[in-house]
Design a protein around this nucleic acid. Structure first.
Lengths: 304, 304
DNA sequence: ATATATATGCTCAATGTGAGTATATTGATA
DNA sequence: TATCAATATACTCACATTGAGCATATATAT
């Protein structure tokens, strides 16, 4: 009872982008994230997961980062209350350690026949590239109905979904999923279908955690390049970032920002894929990565 | 062998600030971070840890956030190699889930007689408030010696410690500890004493992880108030932030920044603690917290 | 009264950001 | 072949933010 014994499991949010569609690797016909027991034959958490992913996808994982560790009856960061989906009453807890991984392509499925599905099948309210996503109005109406006269709920909804003068904040992926969960508007919490495709257990919450992390990270670390091919045009890079954050970017300002960070350099070649003027091809400069990352201090320190 | 059974343990980095000294709660005469098994009597990871901390410190924990989950033979985010400190060859892995918690004061020790020690006893190279910290020159010399002709090592050292024209980045706490570890300059990796006080196992690495998280977080979330008393002066707030990040701040620019975020409001009273003009007292405005946090987008989205 | 110490407010140059416009270079088409 | 449509790249400009320092206000100590 007090031994602290638990069953350990690894869960991966594996992301890739094809064209302008961000994708996630799934199993069980798109209903679950890939996962497996953490066995003692693995050298480490990272190494165990890396081996497993590479055997499944046939591609190396460039970027792999721990997301969050959940325990039974404690799914989701700031939840004190039980959700009742814990299962049997054994004195064995299950501990799930989730990871975010980025892979460059998603061809060559391995033994497990993984499937790639678009993020926004599961979280359609997160894609604002073409204006308000489908199903937006009914969802907002239902959220407001749930909030009722409760000022706290009203504020949380307005903040998370960018209503009532608040700006849309693309990073709040997890907050939004949790609000929808709490409001009973997703299947996982007993809601009717409609608000995106459901997943087993809390896998959709873990997907939301991964997307939130990636959207936050892309602002101060050049993770986008982990998803890009060797050489690429400016527009391809822009489309990829837009796919991840679910928003359109200002073209020339995006170019300027990338330019002045000196993250990329011309290859010398051009593409003639498109109709108009051919675009220059660029490659990533990894040497600069370590040197410039995390430049944003935001605190008024005294210099000199 | 492949069951995924493991022993689960919770480890806490509990921080408080008294005056201008940031502190961490320790056990074992200041040689270890508080930890304990995660038992099935706990409702959840968060709740279990929260209960335990409050019984130990006698104070409620305002802020509690998961840091990182380690497994035996995998201590530290990006390490593939074993460190050989794993212990017995049982097929039971130990999994340590670490948390960062912030408490407002550190009086009233509970049953376990915890001790509070200054952060910078353990990581003296992190405190740059009074210029270069003691032991800086010998440490840099030893690092350069370790780097030798290896350009990669040289670059990592220069970047992490702000040498050769690079600016000091207070967030890179973990990178610095890991470099010192790798270079054999801390006791935990066989180095002689001198570079700060050691801790058991990898507790000092976990402390570094917690400080790094806090220093990064303070830039975009008002976590400082979790450590402040009810009412405070501007200078007290500044001193606290300075203690956390280990740097001096520009007085009026700091005031301006806090001002325009509308995070605090006057209480109407003043203090006459000091010699000169009495300072106005302020209180934190928690209502605004949710509404304004995470304003920094950093990506050039198209508006309208 | 005067010096000293701290608090609070103001200015200004430099830099960064949001938004839009202008020019260049291609393929398609009349 | 002249023109159009489409895309790429470059430039401008107002405005906000930031880094740095100076000025003023109000207390205590002598």
């Amino acid at each position: 009872m007090t031994t602290g014994l638990a069953q350990a499991e690894l869960i991966a949010v594996l992301a890739a982008v094809t064209g302008d569609a961000p994708r996630v690797m799934t199993v069980a016909a798109g209903e679950a994230l890939p996962s497996g027991p953490f066995t003692s034959s693995h050298r480490s958490l990272q190494a165990g997961l890396r081996d497993w992913i590479e055997s499944q996808t046939g591609h190396p994982v460039g970027f792999l980062e721990q997301l969050y560790t959940f325990a039974d009856r404690d799914r989701g960061p700031d939840r004190g209350s039980d959700r009742g989906d814990a299962g049997a009453e054994a004195d064995l807890r299950r501990i799930s350690i989730s990871y975010l991984g980025l892979v460059r392509e998603q061809a060559a499925p391995g033994a497990g026949r993984p499937e790639w599905h678009g993020w926004y099948e599961y979280l359609p309210w997160e894609d604002h590239r073409a204006g308000l996503p489908p199903g937006w109005q009914p969802m907002v109406t239902a959220l407001n109905l749930w909030a009722g006269e409760d000022a706290g709920r009203q504020q949380r909804v307005a903040y998370a979904f960018g209503l009532q003068g608040q700006a849309w904040n693309e990073d709040l992926v997890l907050s939004r999923y949790e609000l929808l969960y709490e409001a009973g508007l997703v299947e996982e919490s007993g809601g009717l279908s409609g608000a995106g495709r459901a997943m087993q257990g809390d896998h959709r919450r873990i997907l939301a955690t991964g997307i939130a992390r990636l959207r936050a990270k892309i602002k101060y670390r050049p993770v986008a390049f982990e998803l890009m091919p060797e050489s690429f045009t400016f527009l391809q890079l822009q489309r990829l970032v837009e796919a991840l954050i679910g928003l359109r970017l200002h073209k020339s300002n995006f170019r300027r920002q990338i330019d002045q960070q000196e993250l990329i350099e011309e290859t010398g070649e051009t593409t003639a894929e498109s109709r108009g003027r051919p675009a220059m091809l660029f490659r990533y400069r990894p040497a600069v990565l370590e040197a410039r990352a995390l430049a944003g201090t935001r605190l008024p320190v005294t210099r000199g």
